Computed example of a mutant assay.
Amino acid sequence: MTERPEGFQRVAAALARAGHPHPPRWLDVAARTAQEAADVLGVTLGQIAKSVIFRRQSDGVAVLVVTSGDRRVDEKRVAAQVGPLGRADADFVKATTGFSIGGVAPLAHLQGPVTLIDRELFRFDEIWAAAGHPNGVFRCAPDELLRLTGAPVADVVQTVSTP
């Protein structure tokens, strides 16, 4: 077995330290989007816990929103909780999290972000999150994600209209 990338190893170590029962899984193909991950894992799009990074304007701190793959983050709702936001480019994401876009895990960041876990993830018993690399994922329950991150639950997605 080839040695896995540093970001994947960092997430694996953090999960092990936390006593998480499911080690991260290495996929044969990269899953850079929530849809790609859902397709590879054979789960619904909503079960993918996607990580969206913003840059808080007041201090340049990373703001991580972890939401369901079938939802869109409402930037105004996030800003109402953490302050005005700016865009986070790929260099900012890599420098603050240690992960490349498409592999940003909800934990084991180089610099601790302000993190919000979206309530929409609780529609599912089991979710899958990135494990520090586009080929890495790990499984958990939404409650486990709260324990692993220490983050609060928030309503931070665009309103979904039901037919």
Rank of each mutant, 00 (worst) to 15 (best):
H22T: 06
L85W: 13
S161G: 07
G7M: 02
T149A: 06
A31K: 01
V29W: 11
S58K: 13
A141V: 02
D155T: 11
K50L: 09
G102W: 00
V82C: 12
V65A: 10
V43P: 01
A38P: 06
R56K: 11
G136D: 02
G98T: 09
F122K: 05
R139Q: 15
D91I: 14
I101V: 09
A16G: 06
V29I: 15
R32N: 12
D28S: 11
P23Y: 07
F54S: 05
G136L: 08
L148M: 09
F99Y: 15
V137P: 01
E120C: 12
A38T: 06
I53R: 03
G7F: 00
P113L: 05
A31F: 03
C140Q: 07
P24S: 02
V40D: 07
V157I: 13
G112H: 07
N135C: 10
L27W: 10
P113C: 07
L145R: 04
A130R: 12
L110P: 00
A131H: 03
T159E: 15
K94A: 15
N135L: 06
A90Q: 12
A130Q: 06
K94S: 15
Q81L: 15
D74R: 03
L145F: 06
V153K: 14
F124I: 08
D39P: 05
C140Y: 10
D118V: 05
A105V: 04
G102A: 09
F8Y: 08
L64Q: 15
V66P: 01
T97D: 01
E126W: 14
P24Q: 02
D74K: 03
A14Q: 05
T44A: 08
V153H: 13
A90N: 13
A34E: 04
L15P: 05
E3S: 14
A80Q: 10
R147F: 07
T44H: 04
E75N: 05
Q158H: 11
R119L: 08
D118W: 01
P134F: 09
A95P: 01
G19M: 08
H20S: 03
A105I: 01
A12E: 13
A80D: 12
L85D: 14
L145D: 05
D143E: 11
S58H: 09
G103L: 01
D28Q: 08
P113H: 04
H133T: 04
A130V: 04
R10V: 00
D74S: 03
D91E: 15
E36N: 06
V82W: 14
V156D: 00
L27F: 10
G112F: 00
G60S: 11
D125L: 10
A37V: 02
V137I: 13
